[in-house]
C-alpha cells in the first residue's frame, strides 16, 4: 500500500495497473477479500484504491466526522494526482461516497459505476432500506450480505489474528460513519439530480441486505443512470462475481 499526501492528509492507497484512471472506493468491510477484484480491474485500468480513513492502520484525522469528509478528501485526491475523466467505482459504502462526490463536483469524473450503493434514504421512517448490519447475529450477517455465505464468508477462527483485527477495525469505522443516521445522508436524495455523468448501478440478484428494488428506485432518481442485475451475487458482487462485474464495468465504460 502506498501513502498519498492529499493536501497534508496521508491516505493509504493501493495503486495498481495501467490504463485509464479508475478510483475504487471500497465497501464497509472485507477489504482483504476485495484485493483480487482490484487486481482484476487493474488489468485494464490504472486503479487507485484508497483505504478510507479509520478503516486502515493510519490514524483518522481528528476533525473527520462524516462521509462528507471522505467525499471532499477524494475530490482532493483526484486533484492531487491530477486524474481526469476518471471512472469512479464504489461498492456499498464506497458507492455512497461516490454519490456524495457526484453531487458535489464531477469536473474530474467521467462516469460512475456504483455497486449496490447505500447512502440514500428512500423508505419511510418506520422502515429501513438496509438490513441492520450492527444487529444481525454473526450467523445471519453473511447470509444477508452474500449469495453463498458458505463459500465466501470469512471464518474468524481460521484467519490470522491481524486479519480479524482488520475486520474489527472496519466495523468500528463503519459505525463511526454510518451509525446514525444509519448508512445514509438524509438530504442526499434531494441532490441526486446534480449527478451529470453517466451512471451504472449494479445489483446482485440475491442482495438480501438492500433489495434490487432499491436500486431501481435509485436509478430513476439519477438523471443518466441504468441498473444492471448480476446473477449469483449478493450485496458484495466484487467478492462473489468479480469477473462478471469487471466485464459489466468495462462494457459500460467503453460505450
Amino acid at each position: 500500500m502506498e501513502i498519498v499526501d492529499v493536501r497534508g492528509t496521508p491516505v493509504e492507497a493501493v495503486i495498481a495497473g495501467s490504463g485509464p484512471p479508475l478510483l475504487y472506493l471500497h465497501a464497509e468491510q472485507l477489504f482483504d477479500q476485495t484485493r483480487s477484484h482490484i487486481d482484476d480491474l487493474a488489468r485494464h485500468w490504472r486503479v487507485v484504491a484508497p483505504r478510507h480513513p479509520g478503516f486502515g492502520t493510519l490514524p483518522m484525522p481528528v476533525d473527520f466526522r462524516s462521509v462528507d469528509d471522505l467525499a471532499y478528501l477524494y475530490l482532493d485526491l483526484l486533484e492531487t494526482l491530477d486524474l481526469k475523466d476518471v471512472l469512479v467505482v464504489g461498492g456499498s459504502f464506497g458507492g455512497w461516497i461516490a454519490l456524495e462526490m457526484g453531487v458535489r463536483n464531477t469536473s474530474r469524473i467521467g462516469k460512475l459505476a456504483l455497486v449496490s450503493p447505500v447512502g440514500v434514504k428512500l423508505s419511510d421512517r418506520q422502515e429501513r432500506d438496509f438490513a441492520d448490519l450492527f444487529y444481525l447475529s454473526e450467523e445471519k450477517l453473511y447470509e444477508t450480505l452474500l449469495a453463498d455465505a458458505a463459500r465466501s464468508a470469512p471464518r474468524f477462527g481460521e484467519l490470522e489474528v491481524s486479519a480479524v483485527e482488520t475486520i474489527a477495525r472496519e466495523r468500528q469505522a463503519t459505525a463511526f460513519y454510518g451509525w446514525k443516521p444509519y448508512l445514509h445522508n438524509p438530504v442526499l436524495k434531494r441532490w441526486l439530480h446534480r449527478i451529470d455523468v453517466p451512471t451504472l448501478l449494479v445489483w446482485g440478484e440475491q442482495d438480501r441486505f438492500v433489495a434490487p428494488s432499491y436500486g431501481r428506485q435509485l436509478a430513476e432518481r439519477i438523471p443518466n443512470a441504468e441498473l444492471r442485475l448480476l446473477a449469483g451475487a449478493g450485496h458484495y458482487p466484487h467478492i462473489e462475481q468479480s469477473a462478471q462485474l469487471v466485464k459489466m464495468i468495462d462494457a459500460f465504460a467503453s460505450r
Binding site: V161, E165, A168, Q172
Partner: peptide, 13 residues
C-alpha cells in the same frame, strides 16, 4: 463495534 478496541473485539470474534 468501537465500544472495545479492535483488538478486544477481534478476540471476541
Amino acid at each position: 463495534p468501537g465500544y472495545q478496541s479492535p483488538q478486544a473485539y477481534a478476540q471476541a470474534l
